[in-house]
Design a protein around this nucleic acid. Sequence first.
DNA 1: TTGAAAGCGTTACCAA
DNA 2: TTGGTAACGCTTTCAA
Lengths: 339, 339
Amino acid sequence: MNLKEFAKSIGMSQTTVSRALSGYPEVKLETRERILRLAQELGYHPNRSAAGLATGRAGAVGIVMREGLGFDPNTTEFMAGLGSRLETRQIDILITVVEDRQAELAAYRRLAASKRVDAVILHTPTLDDERMQFLKELNMPFIVHGRGDEDGGYPWLDIDNLGAMYRATGYLLDIGHKRIGLINGAKGDVFAEHREQGYRRAMKERGLQAPDMLVVNGLFTDDIGYRAMQDFLALPEPPTAVLAGSMMSALGVMRAVRSAGLQLGRDLSLIAHDDVFNYINADNMVPTVSTTRSSMREAGVRIGDIILQMLAGRDVTNHHEIWPVELVLRESTCPPPAA
Amino acid sequence: MNLKEFAKSIGMSQTTVSRALSGYPEVKLETRERILRLAQELGYHPNRSAAGLATGRAGAVGIVMREGLGFDPNTTEFMAGLGSRLETRQIDILITVVEDRQAELAAYRRLAASKRVDAVILHTPTLDDERMQFLKELNMPFIVHGRGDEDGGYPWLDIDNLGAMYRATGYLLDIGHKRIGLINGAKGDVFAEHREQGYRRAMKERGLQAPDMLVVNGLFTDDIGYRAMQDFLALPEPPTAVLAGSMMSALGVMRAVRSAGLQLGRDLSLIAHDDVFNYINADNMVPTVSTTRSSMREAGVRIGDIILQMLAGRDVTNHHEIWPVELVLRESTCPPPAA
DNA sequence: TTGAAAGCGTTACCAA
DNA sequence: TTGGTAACGCTTTCAA
């Protein structure tokens, strides 16, 4: 059933029906309600391609994912939040999977030229990230999940990674630690750089060294967490506390600590970053794990909000949001054992 | 730039350009190559809404996710596989997030009526799942990831859950276990029912009981794995071996075992189902964990294949595929301790 | 092998 | 407040 048929069957003009369904104000309330009800009953939904062609809008936002990296459980959580918000306006999420960074740019070009999405969401910006400039040249509206430039002329939302690590590190220093290991994200990812800065700043303020061997960069996997911790423990002077970038890394750390016959929260301290999932929970570990915590899902919801504003024509180019990160202390942190 | 402008700028008719870009055979090879090259150079991509309107095809496949449940890390892995396959034909994945089962059906209705996607993928079918019938009535092509009816008149792809649990249970029985716990998915999910059947069949064939208290249903979270295992250990006659439905549940199990001062692979055996992620690895646990293994990502790739065939007009209504599941023995399994 | 032109189903402008 | 109708940009039929 198309608009013509539907309009005819209820004895209205196409114009009025279209306006009523799109919520235009000039339709009499009574008329609108009647049309809405009948559309519901008869199951009429406008053809999205036709609407897209007429309006130039696609009714979808795009996310381009690279196959290997960047396609982790966080993504799912983020999308759950984002989607739940966008669903209220029947905006869908369009996922394109690509192999590498170059294919990612090609995908943006296709999405833009074919008018397949109204905006895209960028994840995990890197130092000298070329994507923002690229999207600007394409005239494709976008928002960055992660830190963007202050004067970049595009919106972004990030958590306070620097502050989080600064506080976590500061706390560990306050209770007496001097050698603190950092298991961080990939070198060049802005969030990881910020975390390292927060860590180094706190160390520096106490006049302490942060030797490079105490900083590890890599994926947030159990495996890498394990190996990093093993390497730490093999040092002549191992760290007495460790900051892990995710709950997955933390699992590896805990395993290495156990294998070494040590006990977390007694021989060694751990603070992990927690993106909040239902399937793994810092409160359920033994010992319970102190965390810097920020919900990925909530970030998705909020970015959905901002996108809806963008699509409504509101100027959000200078909308920057930095979310504070909670420091939740649990059993995995304690003063360093007496030397 | 639209087709008209592009065609004009290279001195061709719209018709020929359109045909060349869509790969129609009647265009002279030389002409096609020239057009393809120029489109690339000038960055021309057909407007997807216009193409959709003209052809009736959307160039996307839909996945509807319910917010809470069913939006787990597996989804990401599956989508990575699916998307990498669909990308070769520039088919995108359209995600719609809904609150509950009723909203899910409404979403299918909208997607169908608005011709927003060419097919949808159904996940985690349940007993008496109403969605297949619903989609048939909507005339929406679909494929089920999970077990469907043999004579349902729609394609599906599943792993051999029954066989996997039958073999895993059989192996444990072979090495002397008699009481085996099962930490399974939600009651009513077909995959979980199949796993329970495989488990019960193996038990029954040896004339053994599988008391209800040894079977737990729930989400695949660390938390539930932990609690289930604790409950098992509190029984007058605890199981000597446990089957966990996912690596997440397995983490909880391992934690409970450690808390009880027991050792896996000595006092107790564990086999977990592994969907294969890069961030958590059965080979890296202590002890290494025996698994029934099947890659979620590969399933995504294969479903992408089948969908491309569907979209190409091939009749796949009776295409059913059941993948064998590997049983990988590692250190977490051993004969039961002498009583 | 190429081209002209008729749809595809909306939206939005203009008129009433 | 409602209605007629010209785009929107592509695909595909028919003709050459």
